[in-house]
């Protein structure tokens, strides 16, 4: 048996797998963003039961491992008779995962808009929708930027867990290359370095946004 060595073409394979990590992250953030936004609105709603349902959803998602969400949607979807490609199962579970955390982050942002803003817009005879659209959400959005970008880093890293159900993204590609070359130290360091290249700029961006937000609010 001839072992391959970890060279340029192997590294190229890792880089192309990184693309799938990015695709999955984008699916998770956009899907999780939409679902999470609705849940954040429900969580801050004036209806008691909506709030309870949303809070329970958040508690459950944040109380179970991502891996379990992954297995449940993987087997759940196939039980429902759907033969879906791994990308859909992985995308669906990362969406569920991201929605639970984004909802909680955004709830905090909506609630951190000062109460006077609600009162002022109400006294201008705005409807509830208008209040959200023109007064509350634009302010909440600005507050939410640093932690949302910070959470994006978590999503990028947690997409690696989808390799366990066989979705070929960066971590899985690393395992495949390792099986062919048997140079685990080199291969996984390269994999880690590629993750770092994606995550570190995002972390720094989050930190920069955070500093800028504080600088503004102190002015």
């Amino acid at each position: 048996m001839i072992l391959r060595t970890f060279g340029f073409s192997e590294f190229g394979f890792l880089v192309s797998a990184l693309l799938w990590t990015v695709v999955l992250t984008i699916i998770a953030l956009s899907g999780g963003g939409i679902v999470g936004f609705v849940i954040a609105l429900a969580r801050t709603s004036t209806h008691k039961w909506l709030r309870i349902v949303a809070a329970t959803y958040i508690q459950i998602i944040q109380g179970i491992p991502v891996l379990m969400i992954l297995f449940l949607s993987y087997y759940g979807l196939s039980l429902a008779g759907l033969q879906l490609p791994p990308l859909v199962a992985a995308g669906a579970s990362m969406t569920i995962y991201a929605s639970g955390y984004l909802a909680e982050i955004w709830r905090g942002c909506i609630q951190s808009v000062p109460k006077q803003q609600w009162e002022a817009s109400e006294s201008l005879a705005m409807t509830r929708v208008q209040q959200y659209r023109y007064v509350i959400l634009p302010q909440a959005l600005r507050i939410s930027l640093p932690s949302t970008v910070g959470f994006a880093v978590q999503v990028v890293k947690n997409t690696s867990i989808t390799s366990i159900i066989g979705f070929v993204e960066l971590a899985r590609a690393g395992q495949l290359i390792n099986n062919a070359t048997f140079q685990p130290f080199r291969v996984f360091l390269a994999v880690a370095a590629l993750y770092f290249v994606v995550c570190y700029p995002l972390s720094q961006l989050s930190r920069w946004l955070e500093r800028r937000l504080h600088a503004r609010s102190h002015r």
Partner: peptide
Amino acid sequence: IIRNTPFLVQLFI
């Protein structure tokens, strides 16, 4: 380095 790389990859290493 630790905060910007996945836990799974750290385990592999």
